[in-house]
Structure formats: structure tokens, C-alpha cells
Nucleic acid binder design. Sequence first.
DNA 1: ACCTGAACACCGTTCAAGT
DNA 2: ACCTGAACACCGTTCAAGT
Lengths: 188, 188
Amino acid sequence: MASHARRGAPLTREEILTTALRLIDAGGVEALTMRRLAAELSVNPMSLYHHVENKTALLEGVCSLVVARLEPPPDDGSAWQDRLRALAHTYRSLARLHPALWSYVQVHPEMIGREDGMWGALCRTLLAAGVPKEDLAATGEALYSFVSGFVTAESRDELGRQRGAEDVDRTFELAVDIIVAGLRRTTG
Amino acid sequence: MASHARRGAPLTREEILTTALRLIDAGGVEALTMRRLAAELSVNPMSLYHHVENKTALLEGVCSLVVARLEPPPDDGSAWQDRLRALAHTYRSLARLHPALWSYVQVHPEMIGREDGMWGALCRTLLAAGVPKEDLAATGEALYSFVSGFVTAESRDELGRQRGAEDVDRTFELAVDIIVAGLRRTTG
DNA sequence: ACCTGAACACCGTTCAAGT
DNA sequence: ACCTGAACACCGTTCAAGT
């Protein structure tokens, strides 16, 4: 009985990735194990290697899966301040859906390409804010790391001791306010 | 021959921690292994457990070792803007000495207590900047996560493809400028 | 083409035994 | 008190064999 002992349809890469993501969401990245994942799928550990090159490739697949959902909100012609706030909120919303994976991504950015949608939208917004072209990349990187740093701190906080939900939201608003105000002032 | 087969003096906790830090600096946190550490010390892996409860405790020890070196510069009476810049630079300097450990700490903040020296200095500076008392904690956390997020992004960048040293320095200055300007504006 | 079992080189850690 | 070897329950991964 070597051919699919597992009940139901044959194993698929899609199924592997979504199950891996579920394991990560439930127990952190360290809870994702080739052997545990196989058990979760009722399959021999070695079967996974027919759909995924190795564990690194598996993690990359999971990261792409999530990053693909990171799309900038459509650009209504609103002021750059509001646009910036909207981008930050979009980023934060997705990060909060998968906090463990997101922390992992921040330390292992090679797992994802530059998520072009968000990065492009950010740059356009910064230009609208009057950031000079030669400062564009540096400014974008600074803001990007600000937001991702804040969100990481936030999710690790949530795993730890609790705080009121309205409390963290307020802190996030304050953080975004500082960024917006800082940009306004910096660009004259 | 059960008693210290190892040449020289008996094993010490200090020696264990500094060697562990060296391994982490050289190869990342995932390169730190009880067995490899023991080999590095020319000692049986099990001997480590007489000085350190387990691997988690070992990592905590290494983190404390590094965090202990994080001291705010003495408070000359300079303007809060300069003081804020100085604090950011101090933080960044230490982080760049141990980038791998620092990334790890950001994801596992339970490894360190709130490093009271820096946090206290930050709060005093924010008060001097006119941040209202009820916003103090939120503002401090925001700035703290901004700087740590930026520094993490920076160190992962350094491990990857190179950039000019003066280029990253300039980006850091720009980042700090945004924060300072944002604070100034926010607090009226 | 897809799956599997046995095997290898690693982990962290326990425990009983050595001096 | 400090160290050690054997052992256990895990890892990721290779490889030859099954259908």
C-alpha cells in the first residue's frame, strides 16, 4: 500500500502551504515541522518533498501566500496624509492576522521580494507629500521600518500580557501621527 | 577520567555566556547549539547543564550580558532634540555590534527586562520635549519600536547585499530627523 | 508520477554513574 | 561538587524501493 494511503484526494502544494500557515498561526514558526505537517495531512513526511524542495522553500511558499494578500487600498485622490494612514493600516491589518509569521518575515526578509504593490504606493504618496526625489528611497525605507517595527512590537505584546484593545489602537494612531507630522515638517 | 578532562581551569558560567555570544555573532542564533558550544569549550555537552538550566536560560544569559552594556549617555543639559538623537545613536551602536542577537531579541523581548536605563532616559527626554504625561508611555513605545524596527531592518540589510556605509548612516539620520520633527509638531 | 520505510546526521535533555 | 556516557525523543533529509 504505497500509493496514497491518505484518505481523499492526492496531496497538493496548495494544501501543504495553507496547512503550514495554520500550524504557524497556532504555535509559532517553531511549531512548523516537516514531520508534524505531514502528520496533520495524514501523510508520510517524505511525501512533502515531492511538492516542496525543502523546509526553506516551504517557508518561502507560506510567506508568498500571505504577502500576496498585501494590496494597497485603491488611490482615491485623498490627501497624502490620509493616504499614508491608510497604507499603514492596511499593513497592520494583515500583520495582525498572522503575527508569528510576520515577526519571522521581519527577521528573514529574504523570504519575500519587495512587496511591489505597497512599496510603489508608498513612494507615490511620498512624492505627493513633497519628499525630494533623492530622498525618496531613504524616506520610504525609514517609514517602512518604522511601521513594521511598531507592528512587530505590537504583536509580541499581544502574545504576552494583555492590554486593552482600544489602548493599542490609540498607540498606533499616535505612532502614525508622529510619522505624518515628521514628514510634513521635514519636507518643509 | 571523569573530572575536568578539559585543559586549564574548570568551566564557568561567564565563559559559557561569552563563548555563546561569539557563536551567535559568527553564525546567527541558529548556530548556537548546546553541543557545538560544548565542543567550542572542549567539554562534554552535559557539563553545560551544571551552569545553565537549559538552552532558554542560556539565551537569556547572553541577552542580559549584552543588554547590560546598553547605558544612556550622561545627561548634559542639551536640548531634547539632541538628547533624543544621542539616545538613538547609543541604541544603534550596540545593536550593530551584535546584529543577529538583536534581531532575536526583537522577536523575543521576554529575553530582556525593560532596559531601565534607556527607558527612563527616553521618558525624561520626552517630558522635556513637552509630551503630556498621559501620552508618555504610548509615545515612548512608539519611538522605541521605530528605532528598533529601523535598526533591525538595517542589520538584516547588512547581512544581505552591501550598501555604502555613508549611505546607511544618512538614512539613519533622516529617520531620526523624521522622529524629532514629528514629536516637535505633535506636541505643539 | 507519486508515495513510502529505513537510515543518517543532527538536535535538547534525563538519568544513573563516575571522581 | 562537578563531570561524563549512554540513552530517549525529537529534528531535516537522502535514497532505494514500492505502486
